[in-house]
Amino acid sequence: MKHIHISKPLLKQVSTILWLVLLSTVSACNNPGLFFANSLARFDNVTVIENIAYGKHTLNHLSVYLPENKQAHPATIIFFYGGCWGGCETLNKEQYLFVAQALTAKGFNVIIPDYRRHPEVKFDGIMRDATQSVEWVKAHIADYGGDPKRLFLMGHSAGAHIAAMLTLNEKYLSPDTYPSIKGFIGLAGPYDFLPFTDDYQKIVFGPVENYPNTQPVNFVDGTEPPLLLLYGNDDDMVKPINIESLNRTVKQKGGCVKSHRYDGLDHTDLLGALSIPLQTQEPVMNDLVDFIYYYSEGNKTCQH
């Protein structure tokens, strides 16, 4: 059999082009890129338990992904998807199978919850659901072979904002649960985005006097769990001031934070880097896995 050698730069270019082409392709899914990424996700060695209720609302359900080849004390990653808190897209947990595949392949347990969003609820309702889902994981992950003291919060875009609020503002989680959060991973998250530029944001985060309480950067005190901030330099949805401000503030307060910025990736590409076509071509996957491995082992010194 004749083997054809394709250089890594060319392979990366072809994979990226394929991803971008599929982003513009019409499909049954309201986001073609997510449809394509999920179509490649496989769970042959993963136990999937879907639609577990963590609350009373129809959207208060989550899915659990458990790899057969776990770490000795597997960390559990709770992933929150975005969609402008409901202001620009209506997404659901089934559209992020590729995120679960990427992380379970590394031996981590993965939880992806749905949650209520605008226009049904405002910010407080969104955060109540997010809090409730994390409290469910803390109470029940041991039943699935996970360690309730090794939890990581992760999100993309508005989901990163939600996860950051849970990580930085201790009021949301119970005193028993909060110490179990070993780290935060934010992909293209808005952390310091006042003044609001979209009308729906003014509704979601209102009234006006509550605006400062919706900004994760305002709750940094230097004692929060370690943060990993990931950002694509071609992002035209979330401004770079968000990652710059949070990174700077955590360092000024003496906390642990590590940030990575990637040339050639935009708001969507950053998440797409976790899909099978790209997870071995971009450094995003390695950067977040290294972070989880390091802090799930109980390391107390900041990773640099």
Rank of each mutant, 00 (worst) to 15 (best):
H3E: 15
I6E: 04
P9K: 09
P9N: 00
L10H: 09
S15Q: 05
I17N: 14
L18Y: 13
T25Q: 11
T25W: 11
P32R: 02
R42S: 12
F43W: 03
F43L: 05
V48P: 07
I49P: 12
E50P: 08
E50D: 05
Y54G: 00
K56W: 00
H57E: 14
T58V: 05
T58H: 14
N60R: 05
L66A: 12
N69W: 11
K70G: 00
C84K: 02
G86F: 01
C88L: 13
E89V: 07
T90C: 02
A102K: 11
T104G: 02
T104W: 01
V110Y: 00
V110H: 02
R117K: 15
E120G: 08
V121T: 12
K122M: 14
D124S: 10
R128E: 08
A130Q: 10
T131I: 02
Q132W: 04
Q132F: 01
E135L: 01
W136L: 13
W136I: 00
K138Q: 07
H140I: 04
I141Q: 00
A142H: 13
D147R: 12
P148S: 13
R150V: 10
R150H: 09
R150Q: 12
L153Y: 03
G155D: 03
G159W: 06
A160G: 09
H161P: 10
A164G: 13
L168I: 01
E170C: 00
K171H: 13
L173S: 06
L173H: 03
S174Y: 06
S174L: 10
D176G: 13
Y178R: 15
G183L: 00
F184A: 08
G186S: 07
L187G: 03
A188K: 00
Y191C: 01
F193G: 05
L194F: 05
L194P: 02
P195A: 07
F196C: 15
F196R: 15
D199R: 10
D199I: 04
D199A: 06
Y200I: 05
Q201F: 10
Y211Q: 11
P212Q: 06
Q215E: 10
N218C: 08
D221H: 15
E224A: 10
P225N: 12
L227E: 07
L227D: 13
L229P: 05
G232H: 00
D234S: 15
D234H: 02
D235S: 12
K239R: 13
E244V: 15
E244S: 15
E244R: 14
V250L: 06
K258G: 00
H260G: 05
R261V: 10
Y262F: 09
Y262W: 13
G264N: 11
H267Q: 12
L274K: 00
L274E: 00
I276K: 14
P277I: 03
L278S: 05
P283N: 06
N286E: 11
D287F: 01
L288E: 01
D290T: 10
D290K: 14
F291K: 02
Y294F: 07
Y294C: 03
Y295M: 03
G298H: 04
C302N: 10
Q303H: 09
Q303M: 08
H304L: 14
